[in-house]
Design a protein around this nucleic acid. Sequence first.
DNA 1: CAGTGAGCGAGCTTCCGCTTGACTT
Length: 781
Amino acid sequence: MAKNLLIVESPAKAKTIENILGKEFEVKSCYGHIRDLEKVDMGIDIENNFKPRYIVPDEKQKVVKELKSLAKKAEEVWLATDEDREGEAISWHLCEVLGLDPKTTKRIVFHEITKPAIQSAIKKPRTVDMHLVNAQQARRILDRIVGFELSPVLWRKMSVKNNLSAGRVQSVAVRLIAEREREINAFNAVSTFKVEAEFSAKDLSDKNVSFTAEGKKYSSEQSAQVFLNSCIKADYTVSDIQVKPGKKSPSSPFTTSTLQQEASRKLGYSVSRTMVLAQKLYESGKITYMRTDSVNLSETAMDDIRNQINSRFGNNYYQSRQYKNKNASAQEAHEAIRPTYMENVTVEDADCRKLYDLIWKRTMACQMADAELEKTTAKIQISTNKEELTASGEVLKFDGFLKVYREDRDEEDIADEEAQEGMLPPLSIGQKLPLKQMKAVERFSRPLPRYTEASLVKKLEELGIGRPSTYAPTISTILKRGYVEKRDKEGVKREFRILQLKNDAVTKLADFETTGAEKSKLFPTDLGLVVTDFLKLYFDDIMDYNFTARIEEEFDEVAAGKMKWNSMLDDFYTPFKKDVENTIEKAERASGERELGTEPQTGKKVLARMGRYGPMVQIGEVNDEEKPRFAKLKNTQSIETISFEEAMELFKLPRKLGQFEDQDVVINIGRFGPYIAHDKKFYSLGKEFDPYTVSYDEAVPIIVEKRTAKEERTIKVFEKEKIQLLRGPYGPYIKQGLRNYKIPKDKQDTAADLSIEEVKAMIEEAKANPPKRVPKKKKKG
DNA sequence: CAGTGAGCGAGCTTCCGCTTGACTT
């Protein structure tokens, strides 16, 4: 039995540290927080100065029990949870639960899992910092109050009745997506005509090569035309050449957020996929901790990286760099994400390999030399007017870090006028250049792109909202609640004009481009838009992008001992509670209703709004004598953008196509997509058919085909008992009502011979031994 | 599997931030 018990948060860390500390120490993990606020009455006694009521959740009972018994036996307990607000609180909760005195129990911290770091930490233990703990309690309690007071307001005031929620982080995340969508919808593209001239010149091996020079942008076709006309029969002369050195520097090593962004851009991984793979790499000891906001590297790591660079590429490729975090909200309890050993070049698991490669390369690059460039800019004079053309080229003189890694950029950071700089042939001042052609090409301004999961994380991090451990779960939450959808959008074709000067004549051409196409982007749903508008109207403070930053400053004050945590909460709660009460009393039920027009035949109002089951359009109002007609919006349609014509189109369903075998053939769209209804049976309509145009002659064969397919699946039917024997993909099975039961393996071949008694016995048998199911999460507290 | 659309009220849901685990198809 070891004399000392040392507790950390992560079990993978526990193992490593135990190896470092040796026999004197038993190192255990508490798996994160061990207590939480109970759920009854928010778990907070607001009247009594916000006194929290903590419980140990069911899933933590086992760990806590084990730690308790180990703590009792140990001579000394060391609390080595992470050095940040949450980590400090975990240490305090451990004291409370294990019966340790927070005033005397040894609390140690380290930012890296290396021998020197841990050994020196052991030499200077401190005690739990109660100010920091109180800052965490304030954070926890505020989040609980916001979430548990706002969500019920939505349950009362939204026309949709599923499990809605609101919170300090998720509601602002949805707001970002909602506002971006509206910006895009309101965007008016402006076009300009950009002049590009193609010249030819001899390269070093005396071969003719062509290169492009750029001219001005003209705001109208007419002004571009005037310019091109003025260039007819002109001579072009190189008037100036500037050569300037340039450099590029590597990016800082990965944090959770930058890893998610690069894995998204380079590998197309979703934020959660990146985290699952990173977790695997971490657990198998391949990389350091993956939930971090720090760009710091340990000294051991720096040495390791330097040795690798020197031995692989030579020391001219090495440049020592210390990175500083730009983010004010960073808590830096860990290192940056890096390989544990740089000599480990790859990992076996194919899924993890790509991500590991990325981490390895980024880590190498961050300690490598700048890439050195030479930028050449040549000015070209036009003999017939005063304008000038500019040709620029870039030559890589020394690759430096680019040898291993090049960072991708977000769509929104790429300015559309930015040219891809290539090589220029050697040019000299006074050189005459033959023009191959000159064009003025119409280019449209573009709105900001919609968020990807990763670019949303980037934005949230910039705003200081959310933490490395919550980026992925936050995205899952807003998707699960139906506030946001991840999908593609087809672009639309757009014509653009080209004026071309060639062989001393200007001609007008046109071409097409696709615009507005999006892949795997986040779109707000109508529900997301309605909820966001509602919350903004009544809870402007919470929805403010700077709300988190503001309260973080107050948490810092609490942590510094300059402010009492409960009076801070009181300052927040008093006005907030008033807003909640006012909203419950005054706010109308929110439905995002929009009037689209009136039906010509009847003069009835046509409305788009949220209904109980989602966005819909309706003709007429509930108070009218006649009941209104309703129709569901299509997936890609929105209350905000649907036109009157599109709405009327939706009322063309259900369509009666005619009769087949004396029964109506009806087309409609249901919960699971378009279907054909015939003789009380339903046949889904494949994607290749449009329910609005599919014809009788197309529909009937589908009915016949699906019916025979079903018959072929049917082995036997017991009409009276409503039991069927069916052939499924895994062999024959019994179907009674909605439930399926298995047929024992030895009877499967002769299923057709089974009697009703035998089948009933099988059902009883199957009911007695039900297949094990996922245990539902117990709700407690 | 293919319905619905108003309002009432039972009884339910809900937050953010730490950590992994192991139901089954």
